[in-house]
Simulated scan of single mutants.
Amino acid sequence: MEFVLDPPHGIGPLRLGLTAEEARAALGTLGPLTPTAFGELAQHLPSGLGFSVGFGVGPTRDRVNAIEVWRPHERDVVRFRDVDVFGLPALEVVERLRCHVDLAPNEDDDGFTARELYLALWRPFAADDDPGEEQGHFFQSVLLARPGYDDTPAEAAARLAAGGESVTDPSDPSVPRIAPPQPADLGTSGRQPGQLGVTLRSARTAAEACVAPVCCRAQRPGRVGPGRVVGG
C-alpha cells in the first residue's frame, strides 16, 4: 500500500481531531489493532509499517492531536510531496523536502522538524555514510500534529494573540505532550516514547553540511541553505 502524509490533517484514514472511537474505527480499516502495554491505539501491519495515535490535553482533550508512522521493512510506502520518506536516505529526504517546506534540524536528536505544518522526521542516530546501518541512514518514524504541538507556554500565548489556534494551554507550563507507545509495542527499536516532536531546533554540524538540492538552487539562486523555505 501507499500512504500520503497530509500535514496538518493526517494520513490515510487517520485524521487529527478524531475522537478515540473514530480513531479506533479508522485504524480498524487497516487491520486488527495491535495490543499495547498501556492500551494506546496502535496498528502494526505485516510490512512493519506502524501507526500510533496520541490524544491531546487542554483545547484538544480526548481528540487525536498527533499521529506517528513507523518505517516499514518492505512493500508499503509513505510519501510526502512525492518523496518516499522511509525509502530514501535521510539526508536525501531532507534535501528534497526543503524545496517545499522549512525543515530544520532538531537540537536534541538527529531528526528534522517542519514546525509550520507540523511534520517531524526521526531517527535514533545519524549514519549518513553507512547505508548498511538502516536505523541511522534512514528515518525511522514521522510524526504529524497540528501547528503549535511543541509550543512553549509563551509561544502558545503568542499564537493565540495572533489569531491562531493553540493545541496547548498557555497558562499551564506543566502541560505534557503525548507519549507514543514503547518501541516494543510496534516492533521497532532504539526509540524513547515522547522523544519525537518535542525538541527545540538548532543547527547541527551534519545538517549544516547538507546543501539544498539543484531544484532549489534553480528556484532561488543565491538564497538557499539549510532551514530556508525555497519552494511552495
Rank of each mutant, 00 (worst) to 15 (best):
E2Y: 01
A90P: 08
R177S: 11
V198N: 15
H100T: 08
R63I: 08
T205D: 15
T168Y: 06
T29Q: 14
E22H: 13
S47L: 07
H9M: 12
I67L: 15
Q192F: 15
E22D: 15
W70E: 14
V53C: 07
E74F: 05
G39Q: 07
R191F: 14
V94L: 04
G222Q: 15
P8W: 04
A203H: 12
V101G: 02
P124W: 05
E208W: 01
E22F: 03
V78S: 00
P180Y: 02
Q192N: 09
P124S: 07
L14S: 10
T168P: 01
P176C: 04
A120F: 00
V83S: 05
I178N: 14
W122L: 08
L45E: 11
A212V: 12
G50P: 13
G54W: 04
R63Y: 09
R204L: 14
V57M: 02
F86G: 09
R71N: 06
G231E: 14
A127E: 05
A158H: 03
M1W: 01
A25G: 10
S202R: 15
R98W: 06
V142D: 04
A209H: 07
I11T: 13
P181W: 01
P105Q: 11
A207E: 13
D62S: 00
D185V: 07
G187T: 14
A127C: 08
F80A: 00
P180I: 00
Y149N: 12
P147M: 00
V214A: 13
G227P: 04
E133N: 13
R24G: 13
R220H: 10
I11E: 02
A25Y: 07
E107M: 03
E133G: 00
D169R: 11
N65L: 07
N65H: 13
P8H: 05
E95F: 02
E22Q: 12
D129T: 13
V167C: 14
V93S: 01
V198G: 06
G39L: 02
R98G: 12
P183W: 05
R61M: 07
A90V: 11
M1F: 02
P226V: 08
A120P: 00
G232D: 15
R96G: 05
A158G: 01
D102E: 11
R98M: 12
D82G: 09
D102W: 06
L196E: 14
V198H: 07
P180T: 13
E74R: 12
D84Y: 06
G194I: 11
H44I: 01
S189C: 00
